[in-house]
Design a protein around this nucleic acid. Structure first.
Lengths: 196, 196
DNA sequence: AATTAATGAATGATCCTTCAAGCAGTTGGT
DNA sequence: ACCAACTGCTTGAAGGATCATTCATTAATT
């Protein structure tokens, strides 16, 4: 069969890569195994990706793009800063909790080299941190949040809590739903931000 | 030269491994390169370590052991829960901030596979989380901290903030001292814990 | 001489990547 | 309708490079 019948061969490869990398880790995952799961020949991979590293990049970008887009969209709905922050918490936990394999990629696999972290995740995480930071600033301006807090620092702290919960969930084999932690997480963060 | 002249050949190999792995990442680091930096032959490595993976394990254990020991010692000095928590924050940031190469190993390199995280870091991190959790419980019993907080959750949240600060510091090339964040971090955590 | 540490070249396995050959549709000439 | 010639996606075996690990040999110490 020639002339891509479905046009989603690239996506099939990405999906296969997510499953394989989540299970074996990036370096133990062979291109051959990704190809086999995707139902294509080894060489076909290289029609869609420059090399093995590119597969990982693209998988991350696909996930992070969705993350940021849905994040922005969700934020525009809410007006108050407190409400915005709660939405961020809920969205973060919900998105991560939706797909464990994908979560393993972002929470574990992508952190395995300074190179990756630097080039990719930090750039995009930076964008994400800015979104959080803006919500904090808004809350400070409206008087909802205490003003004596560096918003950049606060964004990092909030992200740290969310990220730790996500990693903890990924690593625990338990079948809890990650978003069930929303209230507890928000409560903790809110306590750190509110005017007392 | 036979019969170890110095008895610290193993440590030399570990030190070399820290530098190489921090620079190249675990999978790009070759045993040959570690050997060269340590000033020993390739084969010598295998007199001290079962295989390449064991080197990484041992490097982590060496660091984490120190971490937990100094943590416990430092905790015994302070009596109040608030003071204890501040000590934990300061110690965590100080120890991580002391050696950037070692920090790269623990903050970045060790997180690159579920296997690693599961087998090692989580076991030891779990021990560390317990130390934090105990301080929280003490604070709740004494009335210093709010009681409506699951101590296990609180410990994870606190660890999340500390860990994010550490990772952020590792990845930023800036020459700030990590422990200078102590007050800001503690302030944020304290706000989340205190009775309001 | 015996013992044990250390060496480093050779082994063997793994696996990314390439590329010549194949094949399914498409085009256009008869 | 039929048949070449064509296009370009797909294939998968083979190349080639990299490295972890082994082990026969050497060297130092007792």
């Amino acid at each position: 069969m020639a002339r891509q019948i479905d046009g989603k061969k690239k996506e099939r490869i990405q999906d296969a890569a997510v499953v394989e990398i989540a299970h074996w880790g990036y370096y133990q995952t062979t291109v051959a195994r990704i190809a086999k799961r995707a139902g294509v020949a080894d060489g076909t991979i290289y029609l869609y990706f420059k090399n093995k590293e590119e597969i990982l990049y693209s998988v991350f970008e696909r996930a992070m793009g969705r993350f940021i887009n849905e994040g922005r969209a969700s934020l525009e709905k809410s007006t108050g800063a407190k409400e915005k922050l709660r939405n961020i918490v809920e969205l973060h936990l919900t998105l991560v909790g939706e797909d464990r394999d994908q979560a393993i990629i972002t929470q574990v696999e992508l952190r395995h080299s300074l190179h990756f972290m630097d080039q990719l995740s930090r750039a995009q995480v930076g964008e994400y941190l800015e979104i959080i930071g803006k919500a904090v600033v808004q809350g400070q301006e409206s008087g909802e949040f205490r003003a004596d807090l560096d918003p950049v620092f606060a964004a990092k702290a909030i992200f740290g809590v969310l990220d730790e919960m996500a990693t903890d969930w990924v690593l625990s084999r338990r079948n809890t739903r990650l978003e069930s932690k929303t209230s507890a997480v928000f409560d903790f963060i809110w306590a750190g931000l509110r005017v007392c």
